[in-house]
């Protein structure tokens, strides 16, 4: 059997055959992690490219501080690097990665409770024209289809997330922004699936109450 026929039979296209990097991009997270276990740094680079943005946004919405979020993102992937040799394929990579990130966020949140922190809506300067901390954490770019959502709504959403308890917030963020199934969320958080659903429902109810004033605007959104 010709080599090209083998590739076709195994689902590898001609373009992928010629480009090893393209083949790596098609690999699952677990396969890439196993490749990195064998010393293939390129596999980790693809993993980082694939997951750095969602993990960073999860951490950023959890801790609501960009610098802190970057530090925690770095620490999360560093732990992945250090623990690469112990990784086993039975565990789903994203479950493992978000467990690390979530634990770091929880630890950071507990440490922050013991010291005074600035409020997100506290003015950065003495005069009220300097903007707030929330302005700093907000994104600089907005997609064209989302320009209708104003800066004020973003601030309100962030504040509403901040009002949630940590248990509700982490479940909401994983379900809403990471599209994780409840079963996987329960694995990451370490509680039962029903508990996750319960927390999710209470989180939604609370957010709905907080954002009641934007209900009409929300109906207008696509």
């Amino acid at each position: 059997m010709a080599y090209s026929q083998v590739l076709v039979k195994t689902g590898v296209s001609v373009g992928q055959r010629d480009n090893p990097l393209a083949m790596l991009h098609d690999e699952t997270d677990e396969a890439l992690m196993l490749r990195y276990q064998q010393g293939e740094v390129r596999a980790f680079e693809i993993l980082l490219t694939r997951h750095r943005k969602p993990v960073f946004n999860f951490i950023l919405r959890f801790v609501q501080n960009r610098e802190l979020a970057e530090d925690l993102l770095q620490e999360s992937f560093l732990r992945v690097i250090r623990s690469a040799e112990k990784y086993q394929r039975q565990a789903k990579f994203t479950t493992w990665l978000y467990t690390i990130a979530r634990n770091l966020c929880v630890d950071q949140s507990r440490r922050a409770k013991h010291r005074k922190t600035k409020s997100l809506d506290q003015s950065l300067s003495k005069d009220s024209e300097g903007g707030t901390l929330l302005d700093v954490t907000a994104g600089n770019e907005l997609p064209s289809d989302r320009k209708l959502v104003s800066k004020e709504i973003h601030q309100k959403l962030q504040l509403a997330l901040g009002e949630l308890s940590e248990d509700q917030r982490e479940v909401f963020l994983m379900r809403e922004f990471l599209d994780m199934p409840f079963k996987q969320i329960s694995d990451v958080v370490g509680v039962s699936e029903n508990t996750v659903k319960s927390r999710m429902r209470y989180a939604l109810q609370k957010l709905r109450m907080e954002l009641e004033e934007f209900a009409d605007m929300a109906k207008a959104l696509p």
Binding site: K53, N57, E141, P143, M217, L221
Partner: peptide, 9 residues
Amino acid sequence: SLFSAMPEQ
């Protein structure tokens, strides 16, 4: 829909 409109960084 409100949260889905939040930009990612």
